[in-house]
Design a protein around this nucleic acid. Structure first.
Lengths: 196, 196, 196, 196
DNA sequence: TATGAATGAGCATTCATTCAT
DNA sequence: AATGAATGAATGCTCATTCAT
């Protein structure tokens, strides 16, 4: 491993640890000293790898900001019927949220625009992109006659995505249900409804 | 208006303004000076009415913490069929969230236990109570044969409540849809599903 | 009682209450609001009678600053033998300190020159006057052959006055000994020594 | 000097400087900025070494709280006749008070229980212990027939200790008398009395 | 590369004081 | 004569950041 590679590896460890702490306790409540302590370093040493606390947040966000979008993009081009794609989309959402819970907690809970407006704009843009993909998915399914034609596609997207997002607040990876299982039940609710 | 009434009225204005700012920008990011400035006062003057920033948060929370629970409790005793109750519950949720958006933003976004553990406990307890009521509602409907018997009541509750909670992030009171309209569509999704 | 008399009476009640609190808790630790509360008033109302907290302290001090000096002056002109005068001086000291404990606690414990330099100067001047009177007393007694001729009059004064001053820290008016009794024992110690 | 030693050395310099200022101007009147300025630092920098202003006071007190007790304890076990021990005790008192004047000024002048109740309790306990040792000394001397049998041991202790304590208010290390000289004269007064 | 040390701006809070009523 | 209300200066403390070593 070259010097530069070692440096990058350490930088990655820092962003990962920071992501974990920011996600757990919140950005404001996490001190640079906390991040450093979690890595067995002094606060000042972080600045050898990172320009500022804000830049650290930016690095975290930018590094993985497009995971969900990429996931959904791939699903969209798969050779599946529209309803199956929706089911896969929900599953992908929950799996990605499970794997990157800290990151999405930052996306959804932190008032990013009060911290770093440009960062908030980046996240917003990606968020809108993600929602647009879902709207496309819904529209495609309606056009294919698979969904009720009277649906408001945007509101339907909000219902699905909102339901999925909220798992961030309660889903426990060590609990009785896997993300895939939750996704399956959620998809049932959304697709077939709960009425007998 | 007596002196005490005036005092209480001012105190109420302060908590309202603070709730607005805490909800908008977050608790940490809002300075006492911001709250004061929004009321045309100096920061120090707030302490004539309020003990501390934390006490101000507590006052905001405690004043209205049970609104949603009360709403749902009332619906549960209404003389309606179970499915109608669910529809009414969703409507109630969105209406209450619209009316008290700042408060519920504080409930759901702030890491209250890092700020005031006892307050967090109060909010958690109420939150669990609210979820319990929803589980009751779902169970009641299943027992009445109105909902599919294979539903996981708790997960169904999480789906419904999560969907409703997420409106906090995007619902615009000045937008094209009223809370009741959104609630109606959301209820359609949940009850009948989106499939054609 | 004329209006002015009533005003003066109230002013006196304020200074007395303030003296009590300043003596008990200390000047810094006593808030104007505490003084007011002890009199059933609002802090702001005090300013109708008193110019400032500092002026209140000055009023307390100036009102009674010369009590001890007056007492000792009177003793000096009494028709007693020098040793009896010393005994009376010690008694007078303890009685005055008992009666005006709060005042002398302020004199001796507060760093007056950090609060009000001119006031400190006044108190210092009176203190020096008081000590001078004691030195006179000692010198008179030595000259009369009543005390050992090798005594350092100033240091002897410091010993006597210091011993008496220290009662401020422990003397309890409700305790087993009266000020006069303590004075008597102290005088025995000073005059005859404790050796068998 | 290792890093830790340097750190401790600096911490010691801080507590010493703070002790000096607290003793001189009083705890309340001394700002953290004053302590810092006296060391050529910024106020914030102190917190790298000290937890809080109160903790700084506690450190000062606890570091040296038992100096006087230790001194007197050693004298008590020395092989001297009781009267010589009393003379040595007075000398020890004045020497210790001279060496740690700032500390004992804090002990005796500050209303510690208004600042830090537990600290006040510690100081009180030590103070009582110190007085107990003096009472023992007096009792021992009476039992040995060296002091008058009619003495009230406790009051005698108060007389001696009070006399010694009061030197804090006037003793000048740069003055004409050393602590030992003052102690010698004070011991003469107490043991033999001032009468011719 | 990392650290110990220091900084300084920022913020909550206190409290003597003012003043219109 | 008194009050409720407001002020603003002061102060302890936090923490991201810098920098010499």
């Amino acid at each position: 491993m070259t010097v530069t590679e070692k440096r990058l590896a350490k930088r990655r460890r820092i962003t990962e640890e920071a992501a974990r702490l920011f996600g757990e306790r919140g950005y404001q409540a996490t001190r640079m000293a906390d991040v450093a302590a979690a890595l067995g370093m002094q606060a000042g040493s972080l600045y050898y790898y990172v320009d500022s606390k804000e830049a650290l947040l930016a690095a975290i966000v930018e590094e993985r900001v497009s995971v969900a979008v990429d996931m959904l993009t791939e699903i969209l081009v798969e050779d599946l019927d529209p309803v199956a794609k929706i089911r896969r989309g929900i599953e992908g959402h929950l799996v990605v949220f499970d794997e990157h819970a800290d990151l999405y907690r930052i996306f959804l809970s932190e008032r990013l625009d009060a911290i770093a407006p440009e960062l908030a704009e980046t996240v917003d843009r990606l968020g809108r992109r993600y929602e647009d993909l879902w709207v496309d998915l819904v529209n495609e399914a309606i056009a294919a006659g698979a969904l009720r034609p009277d649906l408001d596609p945007w509101l339907t997207m909000k219902a699905i995505v909102g339901m999925c997002n909220s798992t961030l607040c309660w889903f426990d990876p060590a609990g009785r249900l896997t993300p895939e299982e939750v996704a399956d039940r959620f998809a049932d609710v959304v697709l077939a409804g709960i009425r007998a």
